[in-house]
Design a protein around this nucleic acid. Structure first.
Lengths: 294, 294
DNA sequence: TCTTCGCATTGCGATAATCGCTACGGTGCT
DNA sequence: AGCACCGTAGCGATTATCGCAATGCGAAGA
């Protein structure tokens, strides 16, 4: 968990890129970064930025946790989703590099569906919308996904994986537990457009889970992950004497409930509720009830 | 705000019942209470139970606030919804009692729609479902409501009004401010089946409001009402010296966020989150941060 | 280097199902 | 008679999904 990317990490990154079927240069283009930056990082002359790690994981169909630790289930700063939630559906033939376009339309479709769900709501997404967003036809969508519901479910899993990757990539270098907790919260605030979309999806998952038992599973997995990530951080800080001597489970429940509740208020645009206010309130809570006072 | 129903209250109740077109006996049947109880209450020999007040208001198309205070907008224990949220759509001809069945199919349809929304979600409600639940035809639904969307909107307004009536009826007799705050919370816990359905609807309103600007209005009204009800109670307790000297707005935000967040966790069936736990946590918060400690 | 073949991918058009809404006529109350 | 209320039947629009044929690309062969 140190700041330098080890040889192992670089090897795995190289392997993932190779298996994606892209050239190093093409992969850098997809990530939207300069090819020379990627090259430097892959040879150890530059460290990976958190977004880059997350991007590599997404494009190559692996997890950041695997990139960093060589194991999808390695215990790290954030709790891992269950397999059900990651499942890269077409089994990856480990030996053969994928044909350049393979896996890509699929990812493009999932991402388009994800965005459409976040912007217009689960029930308003039509096959035709997804197809149009990808510049392709309805049939192409149905070629990759048997039914619309399969696609939508995969889009939700994609969302879970994204949040996980973002957390691992953004937090693994942070040693100070107090700072890590603050950063963990920062990574969840509905601040950027991307995170607002993610919040929109969580809210939809909550309401669906309250109605439809089939949604319970994906919700339970994503929420358990979120709960355990907080709980693990609190437990670490408490164990190392930086945090006060509270009941970890109780404090986790309070913190998650407060974050969710304030997130809703921000997302629905209630007067007086802003991201700034949300951040301030959470920092106050941590200052007052989480940190140990000497 | 004393415990006895005044002459005024009884007069207004009688008027409302009369205008509903039912006989006193028939009205009691609709409320599901013994006709003799209704008779005693109307003549002052028995007090109205809170559910009875709420029931009278719902069936007769008035608000509990009007029953108690003679004015829909009277300032009371709970904040009133804006007109937009109550609007008893067919203007009530004040002189003529309604024909027995009038207003009733309409209410039945709204209530059926309300239940269906809560159970299956806004977007899954079909005209045919509502019709079947009422034992009638699609056309009957369209007779009372121009479009499905009008019906669904009215069902949401109905939900706002219900919560308001429940709060006024349940709290108006409680003088002790601390006890009233606890009761206010108690009235919102997703404990009974009815309240679980109401929570389901709130969650849907939240997510819709985050997506669709048109939903903002109804959400803003219902949430403002909820916010102000809490804020008013906190301010009253603070003013009378029972509560500590906190910032009312801030405390209101914290309390509502915590309630919402925990409500979600209960509604989605997260492990370790129960109504009991929710109640306990809220009571602890009030004990620690709201009450004045001598 | 050119041709051919196989296969993954995609577009086009059709089909069937769902669903909101309406036209029209009937019924019973006043 | 007049009116509020409601049922039957069906139109028309939207959509998910499927069958079929075309396309394009890499591998294999000439």
């Amino acid at each position: 968990m140190n700041g330098e990317a080890t040889d192992d990490v670089r090897d795995r990154a190289r392997e993932a890129i190779h298996r994606s079927g892209f050239s190093q240069r093409g992969f850098a283009d997809r990530l939207g970064i300069d090819p020379t930056k990627l090259s430097k990082s892959l040879t150890g002359r530059r460290r990976f930025a958190p977004e880059e790690l997350a991007g590599i994981a997404t494009e190559a169909g692996v997890t950041v946790n695997w990139l960093l630790n060589g194991d999808d289930d390695a215990v790290t700063v954030a709790a891992a989703p269950r397999d059900s939630a990651v499942a890269p559906p077409p089994a990856i033939p480990a030996d053969r590099p994928l044909a350049a376009k393979e896996h890509n339309r699929r990812l493009q479709i999932i991402d388009a569906a994800w965005t459409l769900i976040a912007e217009h709501g689960f029930h308003s997404v039509r096959v035709a919308h997804v197809a149009r967003a990808c510049g392709t036809s309805n049939a192409a969508v149905h070629y990759h996904f048997p039914t619309l519901n399969h696609l939508l479910e995969d889009a939700l899993r994609y969302s879970v994986k994204q949040a996980f990757d973002r957390q691992v990539a953004g937090l693994h270098e942070i040693e100070d537990i107090h700072e890590r907790l603050l950063n963990l919260i920062e990574l969840q605030l509905p601040d950027s457009e991307r995170l607002r979309l993610e919040w929109s999806i969580w809210m939809q998952v909550w309401t669906s889970a309250a109605l439809d038992p089939n949604m319970r599973e994906i919700h339970a997995d994503s929420y358990r992950r979120w709960h355990e990530t907080i709980a693990r951080t609190l437990a670490e800080g408490r164990g190392s004497g930086v945090f006060a001597d509270f009941d970890v489970e109780e404090m986790t429940k309070r913190l998650t409930a407060l974050i969710d509740g304030m997130g809703i208020q921000v997302m629905t645009g209630m007067p007086g509720r802003s991201v700034d206010h949300m951040r301030r309130t959470l920092h106050e809570l941590i200052e007052r009830d989480v940190l140990k006072h000497v």
